[in-house]
Nucleic acid binder design. Sequence first.
DNA 1: CCAAAATGTGAGCAATGGCTCATGTTCAAC
DNA 2: GTTGAACATGAGCCATTGCTCACATTTTGG
Lengths: 205, 205
Amino acid sequence: MANAPPPLSPRKTPRQARSKATVHAILEAAARILETQGADAVTTNAVADRAGVSVGSLYQYFPSKEAIFAELIRQMRAQMRDDIFRAMDFVVGKSLSFAMARLVRAVIHHHVHRAHRADALEHLEAQLPPDPDSLAMMSQTRARLALCLTQHDVPQPEQAAEDVLNLIIGMAHPALHDGETDFDSLARRIDPAVLGYLGANVTVS
Amino acid sequence: MANAPPPLSPRKTPRQARSKATVHAILEAAARILETQGADAVTTNAVADRAGVSVGSLYQYFPSKEAIFAELIRQMRAQMRDDIFRAMDFVVGKSLSFAMARLVRAVIHHHVHRAHRADALEHLEAQLPPDPDSLAMMSQTRARLALCLTQHDVPQPEQAAEDVLNLIIGMAHPALHDGETDFDSLARRIDPAVLGYLGANVTVS
DNA sequence: CCAAAATGTGAGCAATGGCTCATGTTCAAC
DNA sequence: GTTGAACATGAGCCATTGCTCACATTTTGG
């Protein structure tokens, strides 16, 4: 009857240094296979093999293959959140256009840094059941941006924060994916789009 | 030695009305399973079952499961291209802002119409080997938009066409996916972003 | 009508891959 | 040392699934 769906959170927390290394190796191996060979190549056997551990060990820490993906996605979302937090902290008190320029470059940098990994992970995320932790991190990211926009008197800052993030990612992601290497040119093309969006709502102060 | 990779094009063209119906039923079944249950649920047996045909028939017309996906993607790209062609034809001689507004609404309409299907297909496309036909259709789409931009003296129209499409899709797609239902509000938020982008390159004439 | 071509069937093969479990090894605490 | 918990192993179970093939049925052309 009560046939609970398998959880996506790690199965057991490692206590010794040895097992921490195991968990790290598993995640790293999964990520590398994902980047280089695509999602279908990420089999539990392949991951364990590449991590230099046995499948049994893998299943001591992750209840399912999907739990590994969920953890990788969590890490990516956390990094993006932190990147954007840093960018927003840096521009406190600066002009809106300066703040947005910084945001644009933070997002581009984030995508460049983890290009293939982030790419594949985002596709995976769409196919997995939504993870509360990941959702929370994205929510925090938007909230921090909304705070910045509020301080510049942008109306409906939550809506604007979401739109602006989608706009930047939507432009940067395909461009970088298609091999765009002139990051500066890309940033300078995104800037006016962001300001154009905000310009409809704010008179530049 | 010469172990050719399985082609993604249909295996045999149906000649009789009966088999045309079979092919159509297979594609429709695959699309419906994809929409409702996700990519992993699309097995050849499930598709044949839902289409009301046998697996054998399926493999008479598609050399592999991926060929079915490739065909669905081709259909989606063709429809998007045609939608945008129609929109661009309609705005010949009109102002740039009018043209862009029309484009924005065409893209939104396209995504609304085939919401879940287009969503899943685009994710699949990233995992499949690139299909020449699909690439050609996207190229034609960009070219048509670039022509429109050229007629409004937008510099670097090819680059701009790509950016504008990415911008519109990038904003519309996540919003619609998150259940946004006020399409008019969405369109009116995208408009200024597009004009902002173009505004950096053109003085409004 | 009748062959030949086109179309359709579905049991089942072969391969894959998620995951378990019986067993062995290392570590920490006393 | 000893003991129990934590950690690791990997052969292999079992379910799934892409796909084939030997055979049946329908359609077409003459």
